[in-house]
C-alpha cells in the first residue's frame, strides 16, 4: 500500500495508530463513558461527526492562515473552530433529530475538550494532507475511536459481574484493561510505514 493512498491513511488512523490506544488521545471520554455499550456507541458517533466537520474547517483555516503568514494563530483559531463546530452540531441535531440529541445529552458539549479532535486537526496539518486525505484521516480516526470505545465498553460490561479485589475497583482496573487492549493493538504496529 502506498503511504499516501486513502485506504492506508484510513487504516493508519483507525487501527495502526489508533487515536486512543496508541496515541493516547481522548482518554477522558474513553474512561468516562465506556461503562455502557449504548452510550459508548452514541458518544463515538458524535465524536466522529465533530471530527469530520472540524477536520474540514481546520483544512480551510490552515490554507487561509498559511497564505497570510499567520501560522502562530493556528492553535487559537483551531480551538475556536472546534468549539463552534460542536455548538453547530448540537444546534442542528436539536432541530433535525431531537431523539439523538436527547440520547447524547451532556456528552455533546464535552467533546470540545476532547483532545482527539484538536489532535486530529494538528496532525493533519503537520502531515500536510490535502482535502480528500484529511477527510479520509478524520473518518479513520473516528472509526478508531468508536472501535476502542466499543471494545472497552464490552469488556467493562462483562466485568460488572466479575468478582475483583476491592482495591482494584474503578479506574485502576479500567486502566489495566486499557493496557491489555493497547497491547493487542500493538500487534498492528508493524504495518505502519
Amino acid at each position: 500500500m502506498h503511504a499516501d493512498s486513502l485506504t492506508y491513511i484510513f487504516l493508519n488512523a483507525a487501527i495502526i495508530n489508533n487515536f486512543v490506544l496508541a496515541l493516547f488521545l481522548g482518554i477522558c471520554p474513553f474512561l468516562g463513558v465506556s461503562a455502557k455499550l449504548k452510550t459508548a456507541v452514541s458518544m463515538g458517533l458524535a465524536v466522529m461527526l465533530v471530527m469530520l466537520i472540524s477536520s474540514i474547517c481546520a483544512y480551510a483555516i490552515n490554507s487561509v492562515l498559511v497564505s497570510y503568514d499567520l501560522e502562530f494563530l493556528r492553535l487559537i483559531s483551531y480551538i475556536a473552530v472546534i468549539a463552534s463546530a460542536v455548538q453547530l452540531v448540537e444546534m442542528s441535531m436539536k432541530k433535525f433529530s431531537p431523539a439523538l440529541f436527547r440520547a447524547l445529552g451532556i456528552f455533546l458539549p464535552l467533546i470540545t475538550t476532547n483532545c482527539a479532535i484538536l489532535g486530529l486537526a494538528l496532525f493533519q496539518t503537520t502531515k500536510e494532507y490535502d482535502f480528500v486525505q484529511s477527510v479520509s484521516y478524520s473518518l479513520g480516526a473516528g472509526t478508531g475511536f468508536i472501535l476502542a470505545l466499543v471494545l472497552m465498553a464490552g469488556l467493562r460490561e462483562k466485568l460488572e459481574l466479575a468478582e475483583v479485589p476491592s482495591i482494584s475497583q474503578g479506574a485502576a482496573l479500567s486502566l489495566m484493561l486499557a493496557g491489555i487492549l493497547s497491547l493487542a493493538f500493538m500487534g498492528f504496529a508493524g504495518l505502519g510505514a
Binding site: A171, S174, G179, F185, M186
Partner: peptide, 11 residues
Amino acid sequence: ILPPGGFFVLG
C-alpha cells in the same frame, strides 16, 4: 516505554 506500559504503570 510503549503505549501499553503507560496504562499499566498508571493503573
